[in-house]
């Protein structure tokens, strides 16, 4: 009984809701799948229904949708220039999807899909893959200029180019691990402190007195986690813009 309550990794367990299997591979609809669907429904539903009136003077909810739109638009324009605006739907979708997933994960008993490394890694690969495909499609081999910073003396070039390649290759890893680790660590910390509250609360007067400290921590961490949930979605979107800038303007740094 107590084991289930205080196990901080239990929240990341993936449980099958109904089984689907193709060619021996397990494609079951799980609680993770359910919350992916929920994320799409919540995010798309919010954006769809708050803008359905198309008011000239926006209400609060329509303002939220418009502000999100303009926020990402200005972020992308600053990050990748006006040529980068063709990736606006992609960056906007990524930001809204990750933000909604993170925020849904803050609700107790809800599953946090961004705490699964495979999800964040897939999203990061999607970004890097877009950068590579678009970069080579648009600039051909000129895209390789992205590894050659301008104004570097000839002797240092091999060193600098190898550093640039390593940093480029580490991008999908850092992009995915940053989001994954932040969500995972935050939720584990919250669970541990909340677990202390519950455990100490069962131990009589002294325990209840002692439980106040982890309770304060839990409340404070919850606030922090909401900040992190937004911040990580923002960071993911900003880095996506920066990487897309490389695809649009290789050799522009």
């Amino acid at each position: 009984m107590a084991g289930d309550k205080v196990d901080p990794t239990h929240q990341f367990m993936i449980n099958k809701i109904f089984s689907i299997e193709f060619g021996g591979i397990d494609f079951s609809f799980t609680n993770a799948s359910l919350f992916m669907v929920a994320t799409v429904v919540v995010a798309a539903g919010f954006l769809y229904f708050t803008t359905s009136k198309r008011s000239l003077v926006p209400g609060r909810m329509q303002s939220v949708s418009e502000i999100s739109y303009e926020f990402i638009a200005s972020m992308l324009r600053e990050g990748a220039g006006s040529h980068g605006m063709k990736f606006f739907p992609m960056v906007f979708s990524l930001f809204m999807f990750i933000l909604t997933a993170n925020m849904l994960g803050m609700i107790p008993y809800f599953f946090t899909i961004t705490s699964q490394i495979i999800v964040t890694f897939a999203l990061a690969l999607f970004v890097i893959g877009t950068v590579l495909v678009y970069g080579f499609y648009k600039h051909g081999l000129g895209f390789l200029n992205v590894f050659v910073p301008s104004g570097v003396p000839g002797i240092l070039l091999p060193l600098v180019i190898s550093i640039e390649i390593i940093s480029f290759l580490s991008r999908p890893i850092s992009l995915s691990v940053r989001l994954f680790a932040n969500m995972l660590a935050g939720h584990i910390t919250l669970k541990v402190f909340a677990g202390f509250v519950a455990s100490l609360g069962t131990l009589g007067a002294l325990g209840i007195g002692g439980a106040v400290l982890p309770l304060i921590m839990t409340v404070a961490l919850t606030g922090l986690e909401f900040l992190v949930a937004f911040l990580q979605a923002y960071v993911f979107a900003v880095l996506t813009c920066m990487y897309l800038n490389d695809a649009v303007h290789p050799g522009g740094h």
């Binding site: 397990d26 799980t30 669907v37 798309a44 906007f92 999807f97 897939a122 999203l123």
Partner: peptide
């Protein structure tokens, strides 16, 4: 669980991208 997550992520995110 990776295969299932990748599939459903592709479906849901793809749908989300289209809707957006």
């Amino acid at each position: 669980t990776f295969a299932s997550q990748l599939l459903w992520l592709a479906i849901t995110f793809g749908l989300f991208y289209l809707l957006m």
